[in-house]
Simulated assay, not measured.
Amino acid sequence: MSSVIVEQTNPLATSSSAIYNFKKGHDSFNDFILSYPRGAYTGMRTVGHGAILELNSHMKRVVNSLSLMKLCPPDGTIEPDIVSQQLASFRNVESFEEKLVPLIRAGLQAYYDQEPQAVETKVSLMVTYSYDLQQPCFAAHFGHLGQIPQQRVKVAMENKARTMPSVKDSQWVRDRALMEKKKPQDINEVILMDNADRIYEGMASNFFAVRQRHDLEEGETKSSYVIQCASLEHVLLGTVMKVVMALCEQEKIDIEWVFPKLHDARAGKWEGCFLTSTSRLLLPIETIYCKDGR
């Protein structure tokens, strides 16, 4: 599938003076992210061809991640003041929005010109600092948004958890590369868990379990189902996850912020489970494959 990468070559300039470089080719998401030094990234999708789903959430995610990260030189442990000054406009939501919206518009126009049959687009954003160029890097990748499976999907468990899950650090793209490479073709996602059978999230998704509740009193209007998800101190708050949270509140479905336990699934205590992500939206899970073969 073809792609378009748009990079602002003068990232410190205002949007009215922005100069964009367009690279058309077949670069994948991983190719794009890993071509830059470690930094903050996020993956977005269009809705209605030209709008970005939960754009404000994505902007805040990048700003928050950059604020929590320290982009130090290769041989240092402290972010220099000059680097912090140059990144200041990317660590503020208002100034970042002024830069981001024109870049997304330019990229979508270029991508749809190249792929006029495309209905929707996957948009990946990268912000970091290059010590070679002595300036921030600010770029976006526009590519094919695959069809969402119409049937339940299969997932595989992996004993691994992210460090600083609240930060969208591109180092995670490097760390998960081996898991992605080993993932069988019929497996939709790899789910992260620990030695205590506690389930965290997917490599690039949020994970939810559904159980039936047995504590409803007569006359209560709450749903008879409860959703379980690892608490936000342990997993990233995904943009589609926020939509699920809003729907649960609307439908009076309680969310338990506790780790779903794999042994509960094996004991038949779940009614089901599902994934959410920007590209998947919401996918019900059919089969969970574990390393012990059970």
Rank of each mutant, 00 (worst) to 15 (best):
L262S: 12
D197E: 04
A267W: 10
Y111I: 03
I255H: 05
Q185H: 12
L55M: 11
A139L: 09
M69Y: 07
E79H: 02
A18M: 04
K23V: 14
P260I: 02
R198T: 10
T163W: 06
Q86V: 08
C290G: 11
G268C: 07
V4N: 04
S166D: 10
P260F: 13
V93D: 02
M157F: 10
I191P: 10
T128W: 02
I82L: 04
I199N: 03
L103I: 06
A204F: 04
E115S: 09
I253G: 14
R162T: 04
D194M: 08
Q228M: 14
V173S: 08
L68G: 13
V173I: 15
F207A: 01
I227N: 01
R152V: 09
V173E: 15
M126S: 03
L125Q: 01
Y131V: 02
F96R: 04
D175H: 07
N30E: 15
E220K: 06
S89E: 05
T42P: 00
H26S: 10
A265F: 11
A196Y: 11
E251L: 11
L275F: 06
A161V: 15
E251W: 05
Q212M: 03
S130R: 09
L108Y: 09
Q151N: 08
T77A: 05
E158P: 00
E256R: 05
S95G: 12
E120N: 12
K222N: 09
N10E: 08
Q212N: 08
S223Q: 03
N195K: 13
E256D: 13
E233Y: 09
L133H: 13
K70W: 03
H26M: 06
F259D: 11
A265W: 14
F138V: 03
E79C: 07
Q228I: 06
L145K: 14
H234P: 00
Y20T: 02
Y36H: 15
I5E: 02
I52G: 00
R61F: 03
E251V: 03
D81V: 14
K60Q: 15
K160M: 14
V167D: 11
S3Q: 04
W257G: 07
T42G: 01
F138Q: 01
Y36D: 03
Y289D: 00
